[in-house]
Design a protein around this nucleic acid. Structure first.
Lengths: 156, 156
DNA sequence: CAGTATCCTGAACGATACTG
DNA sequence: CAGTATCGTTCAGGATACTG
């Protein structure tokens, strides 16, 4: 079921992650689930996508371990499911916030967007950034990417 | 040329950014450009995509202000262009790194990927994270997203 | 309310051939 | 080397109807 690995696409975590969350509605589902949306119809209202697409995305996200189905049952009704974010989904928040802030800064006309992110604890605004092992911020311009020396197989 | 704004998709920086960089090869182009790749043929070799797709993506990224065409001319040859990352592209690095590290942690079998990121200055490993206005790390679980109070128009 | 099934369209992509 | 042009396939996504 995984795509055949003709290139190093299969070897690239960036591409792999993006192929999971990069589809049109997926990221919006995650955005909403972090805003507290849990139920099918609520997603549908907010996203205004077709139920078929929503169903598919929810299933994909659940199978990927980003969402967890939680059964609930109101009196006299049949069993229903709510969709809760998992730890893996929470781990994706830096990416989500980063995406949002980049768009706010570079795509929005006024340089800020319709939502903001704050810490529940301190109330301070929060941003996605790069930090080193000592938790010190690092400028993106000071980065370098390199292949890990432990690379098991070399391509080409 | 912009997509018609039927829903709040158009109002969402997350979706807007993703529609720009979310396409299959775009993120790989960015990855490579951060590794120092600059020329058409070098991208082509590394990505193994069709020249048509590469050409289109390069154009899109250039128009979006993520890449800058730099003319160069070798003796006896006609003018050629190299593609350099702009500041906007560099600003996207936290997202890129975040994507990579999430994939390494949650998709790779052994929990680490084929590449690592370090600071050119300190040599320390770097990761994408959330920090507050005082540069203190914030746990993703302690986040909350809310609409900005200054929202100019309300939808629906 | 919470989905699933079906049909249809548009667009992204791969392959390939061609130009300067 | 650095692209552009064209063609065909595949597949995500919209609309809509249907089920429990």
């Amino acid at each position: 079921m995984t795509t055949p690995p003709p290139v190093d696409l299969a070897n690239c975590s960036i591409a792999a992650t993006l192929s999971l969350i990069g589809e049109k509605w997926t990221i919006l589902i995650l955005r909403d689930v972090f805003s507290g949306v849990r139920r099918f119809d609520d997603f549908l209202q907010r996203l205004q996508c077709s139920p078929a697409v929503l169903s598919t995305r929810l299933k994909t996200l659940t199978e990927a371990g980003l969402l967890r189905k939680v059964s609930y049952k109101e009196p006299g009704e049949r069993e229903r499911f709510a969709y809760h974010p998992t730890r893996a989904a929470v781990d994706l928040l830096p990416v989500l916030i980063g995406l949002m802030q980049w768009g706010d800064a570079h795509l929005a006309a006024d340089g800020n967007g319709p939502a903001e992110v704050r810490s529940k604890i301190s109330g301070l605004k929060v941003r996605a950034a790069l930090i080193d092992e000592a938790d010190a911020p690092v400028s993106p311009a000071d980065m370098q990417m390199m292949a890990t020396p432990t690379a098991p197989e070399s391509s080409t």
